[in-house]
Design a protein around this nucleic acid. Sequence first.
DNA 1: TCGTTATTTCGCCAATTACCGAAATAATAC
DNA 2: GTATTATTTCGGTAATTGGCGAAATAACGA
Lengths: 94, 94
Amino acid sequence: MNEVFQALSDPTRREILRLLRQRDMSAGEIAESFPLANSTLSGHFKTLKHSGLIVSERSGTTIVYSLNVSAFEGMLAAVMELFAMDEEPKESKK
Amino acid sequence: MNEVFQALSDPTRREILRLLRQRDMSAGEIAESFPLANSTLSGHFKTLKHSGLIVSERSGTTIVYSLNVSAFEGMLAAVMELFAMDEEPKESKK
DNA sequence: TCGTTATTTCGCCAATTACCGAAATAATAC
DNA sequence: GTATTATTTCGGTAATTGGCGAAATAACGA
């Protein structure tokens, strides 16, 4: 789960996830939305893949990425654990 | 919101949040749970404060930290936005 | 096989980050 | 004011991170 939090710490990677929310996309399609080198984005894809947040599938010469929604459940659980939303609320100041 | 994601990317800071979930604690009390220099933990408190995830209150010579639960709502919304939990689910592969 | 397309890997760099020990600061008591 | 306690700030270090361009790899068609 540390990898997920790590993966989400970068704004570019979060934006990639937002794009993939709309539809599956190839590396090249995603790259069109960023003023970054393709090699940089490959690095980001790698991080997202290893965290489990996205999955990839090769189709000829292109690689298509998609969200792994089941990873979201783990993420939600982890966030809730941090803030005890599933437990008795604790007195705390704003 | 980027600051929140950044703050949560570090395991020590996540552990600090878990501790504060149980009860408000002073810097010194929190420090007892970590094999780290106090100065290091002060740096972590600073990051968490600036992200809005915790708040601090001085009480004499001690500083007591507590969770800022309202920040969690923003975090939840941000996570949901990433995964479109509030929208039509999209076909995607596991 | 060669040429092309799509993408990743590699090596490098500058900036950032988590850690440390020492110094500084904040609060209090005498 | 001095001494003590609690905590933060500061300066330094090693490791990590996000970026780049070039090289390598994967897939395909002729």
